[in-house]
Amino acid sequence: MDSNYLKVEFPSLPENVSLSRVIVASFAAQLDFTLNELEEIRVATSEAVSNCVIHGYRESQGRILLELTIKDGELEIVITDYGCGIQDLDLAKTPTYSTDPERMGLGLVFMESFMNYLTLESEVGKGTRVTMRKRPERGTNHDGSKQ
């Protein structure tokens, strides 16, 4: 597989969180990920899309854009919402910080633990974009180059 991409847009319904997991895992399976790595990708995706539904749009509803790319043996997932944005990025990144007592504040912790790369860009009133990358562990040298 040299390169591939997929672009999907869907409304911020809780039901679409599981749909996004299925889409990302199916796409990711084109690379040589282990079952365990695919599970990690499913969790990271679930957290990112849940964040759009819960924090991006809160009580309202909007669009979530899911963009997937395979390039040079690496998976990139970009998840964008056009919601309220994050006021304080440093606070949002604090492990176990949450704006909701029923939530654990672990979404970003899981995304960081399970993916090789994570960036979070946000503008108040405009929205938030999460970019995550992961490379299959097998078939990859320790310096990240392909075998």
Binding site: S46, S50, R103, M104
Partner: peptide
């Protein structure tokens, strides 16, 4: 087969 942080949150609650 699957639990994420939303699931952990309701278990903790």
């Amino acid at each position: 087969p699957f639990i994420d942080s939303s699931g952990l949150g309701v278990i903790l609650g």
